[in-house]
């Protein structure tokens, strides 16, 4: 009850909750498409790679928004370019490009004359969300969700059967870079809540949990958003009540949810699968 009383009393906690809930929804929705397209590692890369953009914005004294966006998109384009022009496998290329970008960011932050707090960017602190941060998250979130809703059909078909999508004239490349843009925006929106190191967990974990629980894409997306909200709100509660780092608390709540689904999911859970396998063996033996 302490948490609820504090929620009524303290403004900063209300802001934290609104921001965390929006991030939960946003990550669940975009994360669903990310994992279905096999781009989990790409999500990790993009989120890390915004760091030099943020550092540059600090150096120039401007909002970190355009900087992060440019850095995220440059990384996506860079990965695409190296991929097409070398014999390296995709995961190696992603690893090379994003770690280079991340390292560049660390160097730039260390050069920054103002005392930029690297830890805050890397891990976020939802309890320190300012009103302006909250509005950035809400507006970016609404924008990304609007685009995802408008292009739902295109995202669906190009994730399931990219060859068919390209055959009938959809720009699958365009959709890929659109999703990369959305990933960058989601990272920026999640900066305060979970930070850039852990945002990938919010993208992947609720969506993966949902993937184990349903065989319908619309239901998976709704479920992922709901699980994202539960993780965010739950993590915020633990963070506030036990004075834990907010990002880590949020991610751990999400991971606990995944573990439950992994074990107990009705058709795709480990236990159910083993039971089915055993029954099949018994039947086979007659």
């Amino acid at each position: 009850m302490e948490f609820l009383e504090a929620l009524v009393e303290y403004d900063y906690l209300k802001k934290a909750l609104v921001t965390a809930v929006v991030v939960g929804i946003l990550c669940g929705v975009i994360g669903s498409f990310t994992i279905l397209r096999g781009l989990a590692l790409m999500g990790d890369a993009i989120s890390h790679a915004v760091l030099p953009g943020i550092a540059a914005s600090f150096l120039l004294g401007i909002s970190f928004f355009p900087g992060a966006l440019v850095a995220g998109l440059l990384t996506a384009l860079g990965i695409g370019y190296v991929n097409q022009n070398s014999r390296l496998k995709n995961d190696a290329v992603i690893g090379i490009v994003f770690t280079a970008m991340f390292a560049l960011g660390v160097v730039m932050v260390s050069l920054s004359p103002t005392s930029t707090d690297l830890t805050k960017i890397l891990f976020g602190n939802v309890l320190a969300v300012r009103t302006s941060d909250m509005w950035i998250t809400v507006i970016v979130g609404a924008l990304v969700l609007l685009v995802a809703a408008a292009l739902y059909k295109e995202l669906q078909v190009s994730s399931f059967d990219p060859t068919m999508a390209a055959a009938y004239g959809l720009s699958t490349k365009g959709l890929h870079y659109l999703l990369m843009t959305m990933l960058t925006l989601v990272t920026v929106a999640s900066l305060q809540t979970v930070g850039i190191i852990l945002v990938v967990a919010m993208l992947i974990v609720p969506a993966s949990t949902a993937y184990l629980l349903t065989d319908s894409l619309p239901r998976m997306i709704l479920l992922a958003a709901a699980l994202g909200v539960l993780s965010s709100a739950g993590g915020l509660y633990f963070s506030f009540s036990y004075n834990l780092p907010s990002g880590a608390a949020i991610v751990l709540v999400g991971a606990a949810g995944f573990l439950v689904a992994f074990l107990f999911a009705p058709t795709h859970g480990v236990i159910r699968r083993q039971l089915s396998a055993r029954r099949a063996r018994v039947l086979a033996m007659g």
Partner: peptide, 30 residues
Amino acid sequence: RKQIAYVPQRGDVDWNFPINALDTALLGTY
């Protein structure tokens, strides 16, 4: 392009994708 239907090789399809038979057929109307 819209007048050309294409059925891919088995190996090119993600069979674990959360979609049912009816919604797969529905893709043809896209």
